[in-house]
Amino acid sequence: MNNYLPMYDNFTHNHLILYYFNETDLPDTVITQQHIDTYPEVEEEYDAIVKTMEKIEQALVSPSQESINKILAYSKAVSG
């Protein structure tokens, strides 16, 4: 898959990833926002990033209570 989005000079998927994670500088932030607002393909790509990351959030799991109890017991033991 080509890293460049069609027709948009020097605008790549990396811009969208950096934008999602708040790592773009001000000029790139403006350019990226303009591309998202202007081109439906870019907006679609950005929405896909957002939705995929949301799905990861839904996959979070907890450790066992036994692990937590051991950690708390260790903390109490070393606090003397």
């Binding site: 996959a59 979070l60 799991v61 907890s62 450790p63 937590i68 950690i71 708390l72 903390s75 109490k76 606090s79």
Partner: peptide, 18 residues
């Protein structure tokens, strides 16, 4: 204050463990 460790673990356990 040992209870503060309990709160920190409860708050972040899912992200760390996952």
């Amino acid at each position: 204050n040992e209870n503060c460790l309990t709160i920190l673990i409860e708050r972040h356990q899912k992200r760390i463990f996952s």
